[in-house]
Simulated scan of single mutants.
Amino acid sequence: MNLRKAGAAAAIATALALTAAACGSDDDKSSGTDGKKDKIVVGIKYDQPGIGLKEPDGSFSGMDVQVATYVAKELGYDEKDIEFKETKSANRETALANDEVDFIVASYSINDERKQKVDFAGPYFLAHQDLLVRAGEKFTDAKELNGKKLCSVTGSTSAQNMKKDIAPDAQLVERGGYSECVSALQNGAVDALTTDDSILAGYAAQPANKGKFELSGLKLSDESYGIGTKKGSELTAKINKALEKMVSDGSWEKTMNDVFGPAGYKFEPAPQIGS
Rank of each mutant, 00 (worst) to 15 (best):
F103E: 00
K143N: 15
I110G: 01
N91C: 06
V71G: 04
T87Y: 13
K138C: 03
P207D: 11
A184K: 15
V105D: 00
M246H: 10
G122K: 06
F125D: 05
E79F: 05
A184E: 07
D99H: 12
A121V: 04
S156C: 08
S158M: 05
G7F: 10
D196L: 12
S31W: 14
L243V: 01
A13N: 05
V247L: 08
K212T: 12
F103C: 05
G76T: 14
L3H: 11
V173G: 13
L150K: 05
E113L: 14
G62C: 08
A22I: 06
F125W: 14
L53Y: 15
I110S: 01
A263K: 07
T229S: 01
K115D: 03
Y225V: 00
G261C: 06
Q186M: 06
K39Y: 08
I44G: 02
A170E: 09
V101P: 00
D119N: 15
E74F: 14
D38I: 02
S183Q: 15
G24Y: 04
V67M: 09
T194W: 08
T69C: 09
L132I: 09
S221Y: 10
D258S: 06
E93N: 09
S179A: 04
K39Q: 10
T154K: 07
F60C: 10
G188E: 04
I51T: 03
A142M: 15
A11I: 01
A121T: 00
A237D: 05
H128R: 12
G264V: 11
L131M: 13
S30W: 14
T229A: 01
G232N: 07
R4M: 06
L126S: 13
L75Y: 08
A72R: 08
E113I: 10
I166E: 00
S158R: 14
D197K: 10
D78Q: 13
M1C: 12
G58W: 01
Y108W: 06
D130T: 15
L215P: 07
E223M: 15
A21P: 09
V65S: 04
M1N: 12
I82A: 05
T229Y: 01
L218W: 06
T94Y: 10
E93P: 00
G226K: 13
K88Q: 09
A142Q: 12
A270K: 02
G228K: 05
Y265M: 06
I227K: 02
L126H: 14
Y178W: 00
D102K: 14
Y108L: 01
D169A: 10
T229V: 05
G211S: 13
V67E: 02
N161D: 07
V71C: 07
S156N: 11
G136W: 07
G232A: 03
T140W: 04
A13P: 00
A97K: 12
